[in-house]
Design a binder for these strands. Structure first.
Lengths: 338, 338
DNA sequence: TTGAAAGCGCTAACAA
DNA sequence: TTGTTAGCGCTTTCAA
């Protein structure tokens, strides 16, 4: 029971209220739910008794009797990194407006059994539906383990079939960003990518497409981790290569690391090398130089995903995909090739 | 019910399993819970039936019958900002290890009634306990509205009486940080603070104490918001004041803003002005100049808070306060007064 | 408008 | 080891 047991042990139940108010249990229930009319006199007595006893109905009992649970679960490979955290915020805010509580579960992709445990933990609760953040391999793995009979929506950066999906069209945005760099006179653009959710991310695909479209050479992809510091060491290596004049990083934090590494190696941005990121991290505009990047509305994305899930829960028809369009933001870190 | 109703409407219940397996309902329950021995033959029949029907027991019914709910709720004034997100991560990771699911609710401090709604939403669920992030006024407001009979732990940067608390001893750390600046030869240290949770934060108190202790003058506090950009405009103003040689910012993001603003105004860090932050944000060491700051182990803090809550839930004795000690990290943004 | 009775899906107590 | 009988705390019939 959610109500705590006072000092005395047993917690207050609806019967206690009924007794104190001198009415039957169903009458108290009627006052609680407003499902049927109750005489003013009794209603008042009941309300007084509820106050006196500090009674709160048992959520478990209510859930059992009929009502849909008012909770949804979110799976995410990370909870504190910018894009993830913002998406979760968007989900939570719109869920709360509809009277749903949000649970979060972080899933580590490496250990199989721990992943199963996490899924079981969630499935063991009464939940109305699930949203999976599929930005990384962990999200993909979770989705595979979820029973089909539970309402599920996924969020990711690549269009896929399967459950309904809230989509950030990253590929198109990346393509525009690379075009911007090419327009600046760079022969090609090198790509430092973050761990991809599948074989290839939308960001990487967009980069590749843009280069192909312009007939530019496609350099091998450089793999970074999630930590900005991994970008730094890559930047240091890149500093030694005079052929590198433009770098597209998988996200802003990696871009910041790369810029720092480039500086360590004596190369200046954007004078010697242009570096662009992705996401429009809150610190991107403050960075020196301010980052050219792609603004992603993660909160809106989360909100859309919840909207789809709610439709599913309520048995209404849902779009199989809803798309949020990112925008290129040009700042100081990209410039003409010299 | 957490189990979805298949195409047919009604969802699978324990009775269906019993019928298919040709045993009684309690026998199914026994294999489910492992509470009592069941003959190998029947156990196997039951397990097969469970698989066949894809049966998952109703969490609501289980919660009702006896078991403590396996979910805790977290209230936070923010969910995506670094310190908050990390704390939540720490809570979630250790909760999951103990088999608890974590729900998060963001509370905005401004609107009273929305705050009540948020609290009601949580209290309407079956939860085992609550953790309140009391880094800001919203957290304080929530704590006031929580019934006494629910297990509650708070997390904050200032020692207080009331519910058990996980404490970041910010005041002591701030004091050390200011001492570091004073040792560098600065006459005094100016303070740009983030919105305080109460009248005064531990960070501000530590700053004040350090100055007092050394007999330094105490300049008026400068108020910033949560956004790094608010630090930037403050930095621009500070650039015009030659008397300002050292600045202590309420967190790293504000410090980054202030440094950028100072640069906009033509003052260099740390040559002209030393600027220090608080938290050791992941980007602090990458910033140019790398930030002198205080490392806070938010995840550990969250983990400790959950530990206290678990003790409360299990009826074990709990420390009224558990303290995490932050460390000063000296990098490049602080230097001798010239 | 109200109360008595039934039942939500499960587990625990009690016999056999 | 198993089945029968009672509940958990609520809401929802169904009569009155």
């Amino acid at each position: 029971m959610s109500a705590g047991e006072g000092a005395r042990g047993r917690s207050i139940v609806i019967g206690d209220v009924a007794r104190l108010a001198g009415v039957s249990v169903p009458t108290v229930s009627r006052v609680l739910t407003g499902a049927a009319r109750v005489s003013d006199e009794k209603r008042e007595r009941v309300e007084r008794a509820i106050k006196t006893l500090n009674f709160r109905p048992s959520a478990a009992a209510r859930a059992l009797v009929a009502r849909q649970p008012k909770m949804i679960a979110v799976f995410a490979g990370d909870t504190s990194r910018y894009g993830y955290a913002e998406t979760i915020r968007g989900i939570e805010e719109s869920a709360r407006k509809s009277g749903y509580l949000v649970s979060i579960t972080k899933v580590e992709d490496n250990a199989e059994d721990r992943l199963d445990d996490a899924v079981d933990l969630v499935l063991g609760q009464s939940i109305a539906g699930i949203i999976v953040l599929k930005f990384d391999p962990a999200g993909v793995a979770v989705l595979k383990r979820l029973p089909e009979d539970i309402h599920t929506v996924s969020i990711s950066g690549v269009r896929e079939k399967g459950v309904p999906q809230a989509l950030l069209s990253e590929s198109a945005a990346a393509q525009k960003l690379i075009a911007h760099l090419l327009d600046l006179g760079h022969d090609t653009v090198h790509h430092v990518r973050i761990p991809p959710s599948r074989r290839e991310d939308g960001r990487t695909t967009g980069w590749r497409n843009a280069l192909k479209l312009r007939g530019a050479s496609i350099p091998p992809v450089i793999d970074a981790g999630w930590e900005p510091s991994s970008g730094r060491s890559i930047g240091t290596e890149l500093a030694a290569r005079p052929d590198v004049t433009a770098v597209f990083c998988g996200n802003d934090e990696i871009a910041m690391g790369v810029i720092r590494g480039l500086a360590d190696g004596g190369r200046r941005v954007p004078h010697d090398v242009s570096v662009v990121g992705f996401d429009d991290h809150p610190l991107a505009e403050l960075w020196v130089p301010a980052l050219t990047t792609v603004r992603q509305d993660f909160a809106e994305l989360g909100s859309r995903a919840f909207g789809q899930l709610l439709s599913l829960i309520q048995g209404r028809p849902t779009a199989s995909v809803t798309t949020v369009e990112p925008n290129v933001v040009v700042r100081e870190s990209s410039g003409p090739r010299v």
